[in-house]
Simulated assay, not measured.
Amino acid sequence: DDAAANQNYALMLMEAGKFREAIAPLERLRKLGNSELAVRVALIESYLKAGMKGEGEREIQAVLKAPGVTPEDQIKLAGVLLEDKQPDIAQEVLEQAVRSAPDSAEAHARLGALLLNKNQYEDAAREEGRAVQLAPESAEYSMLLAEALILWKHYPVALQFLAAVKERFGNLPEYRYKVGLSYYGMHRFPQAVTEFEALADQRHNLDRVQFFLGNSYANMGDLNKAESHFRRAIGLNPKNASYYAALAQLLLKESDDKRDEATALLEKALALDPSDVASKQELALCYEKGSRYVQAQHLLEDVVR
């Protein structure tokens, strides 16, 4: 029939990336009285990806006010908006989902995860805390709450919460990682090392674990072990600028004879992340000590710009 033909044609256009062209058949479907959420969400996605933000926002409001829209529908719509890099509108949708279904663990958890990505850690912890209360059996929600508490720098609270859920989730690698991060944040480096080493024995390919082992050993004064772990982190993930910068700073602490390697590492770090001000300053000092004054001056001018 006409509706099915329009829907298939619109979906084909969307799959081909022709979002502006998909709008007309989707609008025809809407005029034909097809108010299925899938059609409305496809229309919103097409508006947004075609750069028609105003039309997209109006359609979102129409969908949210439509009779029979469930919190599950709102969560689906928020997912589409997040895929389209529209976190602010997605947040409004999820906040409405939470208001309309205050006992929906998923609504609270999805809102908490979004707030976490926006660095709003206190609000994220509140939402994830509610999700955990509503669904204590969910490892995902508990780990998100621990992450929010750690990023909020409430390390003792995170550790206390993790201890409370140890019986349920203590065998998960992510659980052990977050316990290690909590100890690390509290500067209890020997305990952090215990957790990270145990996790590294289980999972050999986790570059972040090697990085935090390097930092922990450096803080404990064991520079040789720190160097070894930083090198492993780089080997596992050679695209992370902070690993090169950390190893460079460690080598400069160890010996002035290692300045050439440290310089090369800082150059690599800046090639990967040109916005790293600390590495620019450190590299400028290396250039200065190596009598490369012009390069040092250029870097320092770049810092103060």
Results as ranks from 00 to 15, higher is better:
A3P: 02
A5V: 06
A5Q: 14
L13Q: 09
M14D: 05
E15I: 04
K18M: 05
P25L: 13
L26Q: 10
L32A: 01
E36G: 02
E36L: 01
E36C: 02
L37G: 01
L37D: 03
V39W: 03
V39G: 01
V39R: 01
V41F: 09
S46T: 05
Y47K: 12
K49F: 02
A50G: 05
A62L: 06
K65M: 13
A66G: 07
G68C: 08
V69T: 15
D73R: 14
K76R: 15
D84G: 14
Q91L: 06
V93N: 02
V93M: 02
S100G: 07
P102K: 06
E106S: 09
H108N: 14
G112L: 01
D123I: 04
A124W: 07
R126T: 08
E127D: 12
R130K: 12
A139C: 03
S142P: 03
M143C: 04
L145F: 06
I150E: 02
W152E: 11
W152S: 13
H154C: 09
H154W: 00
F161T: 11
L162S: 12
R168H: 08
R168E: 14
G180S: 08
H187P: 06
R188F: 12
P190F: 06
A192V: 00
V193L: 05
V193M: 01
D201E: 15
N205Q: 10
R208D: 12
V209L: 13
L213S: 07
A218W: 07
N219V: 05
L223T: 14
L223E: 14
N224A: 15
A226P: 04
S228I: 11
S228T: 15
G235Y: 03
N237Y: 01
P238A: 14
S242T: 13
S242V: 09
A245P: 00
A246D: 03
L250R: 09
K253H: 06
K253A: 08
E254T: 07
D257M: 05
K258W: 04
D260A: 13
D260C: 01
D260R: 04
P274V: 03
S275E: 08
V277K: 15
A278M: 09
K289A: 05
Y293K: 11
